[in-house]
Amino acid sequence: MVATAAEVWAVLATVPDPEIPAISLVDLGVIRAVEWQNDLLTVTLTPTYSGCPATRVIAMDVEVALRDHGVQNLKLETQLAPPWTTDWISDAGRAKLEAYGIAPPQPAGGPAHCPLCKSQAVERISQFGSTPCKAQWRCQTCLEPFDYFKCI
């Protein structure tokens, strides 16, 4: 049974993102607040892209994980402002994305290098990729196509 906010954060750090299971919901930065008021736990979530179908699954996964850890009285809230930004992806999350083969977001608007062979010779195929949050790029050295997590 989780009893403190720190324990709740620890549980949520084990819940994978449904689209990109290499990173957790905490890494992704979609958990905005965790608050206990007596026996009521309120978890505040923010959506990544407004139309992302994973948003509902994320809420369900959070609920399942916390109920599995003995939370009886749970309230999930959605917060739109301030809007989610890729800046909220943790450093650990960025490293995990790259290890998974997805180039993490960069302020320059494109990948720093190919996540597979690390070559800096990369080209954009399309600004829109396999999910709303990703663009399609290709490495000109190893020739592999890869996903780039685009900035918003």
Partner: peptide, 20 residues
């Protein structure tokens, strides 16, 4: 294929905005 994906993603963003 890239255009198909781009259009589908655009539609998805728009439906997200419509929901809000």
């Amino acid at each position: 294929l890239e255009e198909d994906i781009a259009l589908a993603n655009t539609a998805l963003d728009l439906i997200g905005q419509a929901q809000m």
